[in-house]
Nucleic acid binder design. Structure first.
Lengths: 138, 138
DNA sequence: TTATAAATGCACTTCCGTTGCATTGTATTT
DNA sequence: AAATACAATGCAACGGAAGTGCATTTATAA
């Protein structure tokens, strides 16, 4: 079990107070968050800093970006087995039309998708929309 | 074979010159287009008109919206068997990272996606990214 | 033809993503 | 410890796209 500091250092990311706070915030959240979500959580911080911090995390595959169709980019921490840079390991995302939250269904891998001849698949984005478990009451 | 006028009338959409032009533009295009694409094609028309026209078309399932992950909403005409309002008939979209074009792969249906207990699937968005047939040269 | 309602055009706002630049903070070298 | 170099942060601003309010024009119906 490594600390956040060790994780950042292992990725050659300088450890700062802001980055630790943002990482912890993402780790606590069980859902994908927008930049505005983070901004609201730290009203002292500037949007640009958050933006660039998340971008830094993204480039080092600490977080991955989620496009859930709301038009607003969301972010979530990569998990241990995330490997979100490898195509064959993509998981799907679920967006709840009721509470507007998006969660990673990490254990649900995307099935093999066939594309026509001549097309080369490099990346797949799959978002299922509907009602989440918290809202459905099932 | 019905005319565009008949199609619009059958959907209770008033036939106007602008709407006919926009419909024809979409019909000619083999790829999904953005609002700006339409705007550039008719520099006489106002963006708001295009925006609302496409929205009208969308509500009557004449066009469907595509979120290909570029951050810009795209639109494409629904085809005969499109039924894009029915979940089980969703097709996938392919976005080319090279030419930046997005096409509907209408014949490629989305496979059944399993979601965890408590989750209710209502809609699925699947975008495959890579290199299209025109760019791959295969 | 007139009355009614919808379609269009213009102006404007908001939101998000993004960048430039000055300032602050961190790390490294002397 | 002081000086240097560089990265992180904060501020301001820009640009693109979506969306709205309202006045005007156009089309349908009485």
């Amino acid at each position: 079990m490594q600390t956040i500091e060790q994780l950042l250092e292992s990725k050659n990311i300088r450890v700062t107070a802001m980055r630790l706070l943002i990482y912890k915030f993402l780790a606590e959240k069980q859902v994908a968050v927008t930049l505005s979500d983070i901004e609201n959580a730290f009203d002292k911080a500037d949007r640009t800093t958050l933006y660039r911090t998340v971008k830094t995390f993204e480039e080092s595959t600490i977080v991955h970006q989620i496009d859930d169709g709301t038009g607003i980019t969301k972010y979530a921490l990569c998990e241990k087995g995330c490997n979100c840079d490898i195509e064959t390991d993509l998981h799907l995302h679920f967006h709840c039309n009721n509470c507007n939250e998006t969660v990673c269904l990490t254990e649900h891998k995307i099935p093999q998708i066939k594309v026509p001849n001549g097309f080369i698949s490099e990346d797949i984005n799959l978002v299922v929309k509907g009602v989440c478990d918290k809202c459905s009451g099932l």
